[in-house]
Design a protein around this nucleic acid. Sequence first.
DNA 1: GTGACGATAATCT
DNA 2: GATTATCGTCACA
Length: 210
Amino acid sequence: MAPESGCPPSSGQPLPAEFHARPTDIVARDLLGQFLWHRLGSGRVTGGRIVETEAYLGPDDPGSHARRRTPRSEIMYGPPGRAYVYFTYGMHECFNAVAHEPGAAGAVLVRALEPVCDLAGMAERRGSVVRRADGGVKEALLCSGPARLTQALAITRELNSADLTRPPLWLTGGEPVPESAVAVTRRIGLRRGIELPARYIIAGSPFLSR
DNA sequence: GTGACGATAATCT
DNA sequence: GATTATCGTCACA
């Protein structure tokens, strides 16, 4: 699909809540190749194709916010298919999709997108770091990190607990990604639980973090 | 190209 | 009072 040709594309159907009601690591794998969209107050839709995710499990995962059940992590124990947006490092927001089996807890951190719709708006929100000397845009820097993509898509904590099956913040289906294109690594940036292989990427994508 | 470091505030102990 | 699921900048190669 060429960027900006029908944004968002009408072909993709919203992912149903049942998509998220499965083991968290399975959902993290299956979110690769799907689309994340945000309809802004202006009516404009911005978003892209998911190329990198991480699974964060329940109380037994030392790297997960859900290792303790607190007011912040409570949403990870709630119904699958909602947004978990948290604030960290004093300046960054990160977006997760709550995903787990009945009775469990967990969420999938979306770490990187391939930009598809409203690249100009993304560039504006991301600021001078994505601008080239000649005025062009470094597309690989727009959404290549969990805090970068929330900034590019204007996703804030106000969207915490939003229903991801419908606008203004929602997910739609894309072309399935074959196993041969998927790689699994340890998670990034953690102090605890970093050894768990729970980061899923579309190998070789130019839009990954790091 | 790589690696070190400071910014900055919500959340939790 | 300590910690943090990050990023941009700076030094150096």
